[in-house]
Every structure is written in structure tokens, then in C-alpha cells.
Design a protein around this nucleic acid. Structure first.
Lengths: 144, 144
DNA sequence: GTATTTGCAAACACTTTGCGTCAGG
DNA sequence: CCTGACGCAAAGTGTTTGCAAATAC
């Protein structure tokens, strides 16, 4: 899907089509470098010298909320620390933010990934996210 | 390994043993809630009312550098955005920060994780990290 | 004793928010 | 027109840094 097609779809949901948004989305769709907000800002500024970082963030958040792009971070959460530095997996609750450990057999994918990408793979992190039992219970309770 | 044992090992590397550090590490080892720096601060403050957030961060960074704890975040990187919101995997270079996509067969682990934890699993993120081919080439060049 | 660590506060970096103006529909 | 988006700047948040006083060794 092109940037214009996505923005046309969003227009039906009451989101306005602006040239800044088009430029931001086109840049993001046309690259695989996973740019930071700052990098997007500099790029869009070449075409729209007056654009501001606030607009970049607003647009990225809007696109993220509609599921058209993805943010690679914990989002609004800050760092959390784990006393166990070995590879193990985490499951995070999107509702309450709780993170629980998953004691599961480790995957042996690192070598495969190294061969596919040429990286010297040093480690990996696997995180699942969803709603924890407590939160889904509360939600059900609230609905009644 | 207990907090005291870890700190004794670190003492051999010239890291001083302080009661604040002991309290921070003991709290971290004794919980599986993956606390934030702020949460650790409040907890340690109960025993050491004069402790400061700066000390918490200094200690956490020291412990992280020595590999005794783990930080759940991108660390010093800021958010990066990806035009493709579907599940796919990333490989991050610990040297230059570049993130590349991995187009690999998806794992079908979400159901398994849901059964083990009781979560309603909505998605997952799998990231590998290591040194990218370019950086390992540069490193080799620098050594010569 | 002396070098490291602490506590405090100021600085920083990234992101969000508020507000007056501008422009898409 | 009128509402949402823009540009700008100020405020927020989480983290780091600089420095004098305290403390481990």
C-alpha cells in the first residue's frame, strides 16, 4: 500500500490529508533503515523547511495508533531492570505494564540468524505482549 | 549468587562495596517484578532515606556493565519507526545501532506462551543483537 | 590519606502539550 | 467557515553529569 492510499483510507476516518503527513509516510515506507524521529524530521525538512519535530511526532503517533507503522521501543514505559542477565523471555501486559518471566526452553536461532544476515550475533531478546490474567479478569468484571 | 557475593567479586575489580549498592542489588535479586529505576529508588529509600536517584542509576549502570543485571529497553537508543507494522524480526548492531529486518519464517509460539502464562497473547517481538558485517569489517581494519 | 562514591542539583535528550495561526474539506 | 493540523516554544519525563562532602579501604 502506498502512502497516498493509506492516507486516503485514514481520511474516511476523519483524519486530514496533509502534504507533511504524505512526506513522512512516504519516507517511512520507502526506507528499511528504521529511522528515528529526528532522522525523519531532517529528511522531511528538505522538502518542507518549516516543518517541526512536533508534527513528526504527532504524525507518527497517529499512524501508530491506526496500525500503519510500528514503534521499536517500550513506548511510554521506561527501562526496567532484571536481576537475571541471562537470556530468558518476557511477557508484558499491555494493560498494567507488568512484565513476567517465561521459563521456557531456549530457542537455538542465533546461528541461523547469523548465517542469514552476516551479523556476529551476540544475543537476542524475545518478548511477548498481551493482557495478563489479572487484567483480563478485571476487564470481564468491569463489563458486568 | 547473592548480592554480597557479587559485590565481593566486583571488589576484586576495584569496585567499592557500599551499603547502598548492597541494598539495590539485594532488592533486584529478590524480586521478579522487573522494577523501574524509580521503584528501586523508593524501595532503597526506605532503608537509606538520603539515597538519591543518581546513585540508583550509577549503580544500575555499573552492574549492567559487569553483566550482573540486564536492562529491558533499547538502552541509549531512542525509538525507531518501522513502516511495516506486521510481526517481523529485527537484528540490531551493538556497534553502529543499525537495525535490519529479518525475513524469516515466523514462529508459532504465541499459543504456547498463552497456555503457559495465562496471558491473552496479542503479539511478540524478537530481536537479535550483535555486530553487523560492516562494523566487524571496520573493526578488523582498525586492528591492522 | 586518597581515590571512589554519595547526594544534590543542574543539564540532557527525547517526547508531548498548549496555543495562536493556517488550511483542508 | 469550522475543525483539525501546523509551527513554535515551553513543559514533562527519564537519565546522566558535575561537584563538594562523605566514606571505603
Amino acid at each position: 500500500m502506498t502512502a497516498i492510499e493509506i492516507l486516503k483510507k485514514l481520511k474516511e476516518k476523519g483524519v486530514r490529508f496533509t502534504p507533511q503527513r504524505q512526506a513522512i509516510l512516504e519516507f517511512l515506507l520507502g526506507t528499511d533503515t528504521h529511522p528515528t524521529a529526528e532522522e525523519i524530521y531532517h529528511h522531511v525538512k528538505a522538502k518542507f523547511p518549516g516543518v517541526s519535530l512536533g508534527t513528526i511526532y504527532n504524525t507518527l503517533n497517529m499512524l501508530k495508533e491506526h496500525g500503519h507503522i510500528m514503534e521499536l521501543s517500550y513506548g511510554d514505559m521506561c527501562s526496567r531492570f532484571d536481576g537475571n542477565p541471562k537470556n530468558h523471555y518476557h511477557v508484558a501486559c499491555t494493560d498494567c505494564g507488568r512484565i513476567v518471566d517465561l521459563h521456557s526452553p531456549l530457542l537455538d536461532l542465533e546461528q541461523e540468524v547469523g548465517e542469514k544476515t552476516g551479523f556476529l550475533v551476540q544475543g537476542h531478546r524475545l518478548e511477548f505482549y498481551g493482557v495478563c490474567p489479572e487484567c483480563s479478569t478485571h476487564k470481564r468484571a468491569k463489563m458486568n
